[in-house]
């Protein structure tokens, strides 16, 4: 069974948002601050927060993992799901309007487009956090979320995730030929249930790109 959840605006993380825009709360100038706040105001009412998800058993085979709708031999995912009997697969999106705002301002005001990009990135991450917090609130022990394209997990998995979650119909999320998602501010991921219990403090630790500008 695939479920659809509609959220109200999740908790706001300004520091993270400014980081996506290439600045910090300390460095931001008066002019930047006022533009940033204008963008926030313009975006606020236009965003929707939707998640669709399902729960699936994990079978371990000789070559790797089998979720029924998908088999993989990804080492990184196997490590991530060590000890997990079940996974949650979800797709989340904040809707198409943020893409429209970004596009509208791309030529009119690239500075605003940059802020809308950053707001979109922060909002979708916060939505994923809110969704995971909900699951934790139901008493589930969760592994860090793991998305297609992380480590050696192929982006091709997107096709299977989309089919099993019925994303276009459930939350209006579609996949293009290059396996990118529209609306662009969207996330798909696998979350292991149970397994190791200690929290992983750094979300970026699963990624091999150690010189990334956004590494936390």
């Amino acid at each position: 069974m695939i479920y659809t959840e509609v959220y109200t605006a999740p908790e706001w993380n300004e520091r993270e948002c400014l980081r996506y825009a290439g600045t910090t709360p300390q460095a931001v100038s008066v002019e930047e601050r006022s533009l940033f706040e204008a963008c926030l105001k313009e975006a606020e009412s236009k965003l929707t927060y939707k998640v669709c998800w399902g729960r699936f058993p994990v079978r371990r085979t000789e070559n790797g993992l089998d979720f029924g709708f998908f088999k993989t031999d990804s080492k990184a995912l196997m490590k991530n799901l060590e000890g997990c009997e079940e996974i949650i697969v979800f797709a989340a999106t904040i809707g198409l309007e943020i893409d429209r705002l970004i596009r509208r301002y791309t030529s009119l005001s690239p500075a605003k487009a940059l802020f809308f990009q950053a707001i979109g990135a922060e909002r979708i991450e916060s939505l994923c956090d809110a969704f995971c917090d909900d699951l934790k609130g139901k008493g589930l022990q969760l592994r860090p979320r793991f998305s297609p394209g992380y480590g050696d997990l192929p982006l091709e998995l997107q096709k299977d995730l989309f089919r099993v979650l019925d994303c276009p119909r459930k939350i209006g999320l579609s996949l293009n030929e290059s396996l990118l998602m529209s609306p662009s501010k969207s996330v798909t991921a696998i979350i292991g249930i149970g397994g190791r219990t200690e929290e992983e403090k750094n979300k970026c630790s699963a990624c091999e790109k150690t010189d990334c500008a956004y590494r936390g």
Binding site: A21, G22, T23, E32, S109, A111, L114
Partner: peptide, 10 residues
């Protein structure tokens, strides 16, 4: 920082 660079460019 980047936003100011863009605002100036605009």
């Amino acid at each position: 920082y980047l936003p100011q660079l863009l605002m100036a460019a605009e």
